[in-house]
Design a protein around this nucleic acid. Sequence first.
DNA 1: TTTTTAAAAGACTAAATTATCTTTTTTAAA
DNA 2: TTTAAAAAAGATAATTTAGTCTTTTAAAAA
Lengths: 141, 141
Amino acid sequence: MFSQACKYGIRATLYLSIHTNEEKKAGVKEIADALSAPQPFLAKILQLLSKNNIISSVKGPNGGFYLNAANNDLPIISIINCIDGKDVFNSCVMGLAVCSSENPCPLHIQAFAYRSGLLYQLKYQSVREMAQRVQKENLKI
Amino acid sequence: MFSQACKYGIRATLYLSIHTNEEKKAGVKEIADALSAPQPFLAKILQLLSKNNIISSVKGPNGGFYLNAANNDLPIISIINCIDGKDVFNSCVMGLAVCSSENPCPLHIQAFAYRSGLLYQLKYQSVREMAQRVQKENLKI
DNA sequence: TTTTTAAAAGACTAAATTATCTTTTTTAAA
DNA sequence: TTTAAAAAAGATAATTTAGTCTTTTAAAAA
């Protein structure tokens, strides 16, 4: 469903929400180690997220990546939109060019239910909220 | 979610269920044209399905691909298992190596709930049943 | 001001997926 | 028995995704 880059992107953003703020930043190495992700690949992803203001960064000594309040307020879906684009939740599971409620593929209704449930979580849950849930419920990222 | 190969595989199998039987077979070209799929790529996929007894085929003049009764009775999921493997519905949406009810990722519950709805359709609906639904409800494949 | 640190940017490589092309085998019809 | 039709098999090519490496830029500390 999500690309590898997108998965790393979501996990890295949650990591930043939990472990950083304007005063305390994290470098690529720290994040890559924490997520068991390839460091240079993760760097690319973080740069993309930073360029699109999903996460924040500063260069130089004591620099690194972090989330500010605005970043923390963004819905999780914004990470996905940034990395995988907006079609992830719209494209037909069976690969039909046209597939809608009016012209459904044989799996349309079920797939739609599955995806809209997940989409709801991603649209209406902020990075901060999910990060808090991770801490409170001791979830893995 | 599914690979391109898998999508073509499902659609081709439904096409065969609707248009063929032991007496009336379809060649790759006919199927590829009907699905707007690349012919040589589709041929590969059909060969794989045939080798795994998901669909049937005969060589030579008047040969082609078709579904017999046993093929028609298989659940849709068998096509997916054959082409994409069994992990499609088990792997973590966030890419975690370990992700289960005991050790869930932040999206586990939602992903699990909605995936199992889709999985149910694929496990307990035979090729024949889905093909009949396609015809009755005038669905596109 | 110089040095060091860390992200940004860009070029490059590897692997997987998608797709194509060519040859071989099977089978039925001529 | 030969020919033709069609799948099977195998090699090759293109594209996308994943991942790496090198150089540049920015910023803080020495």
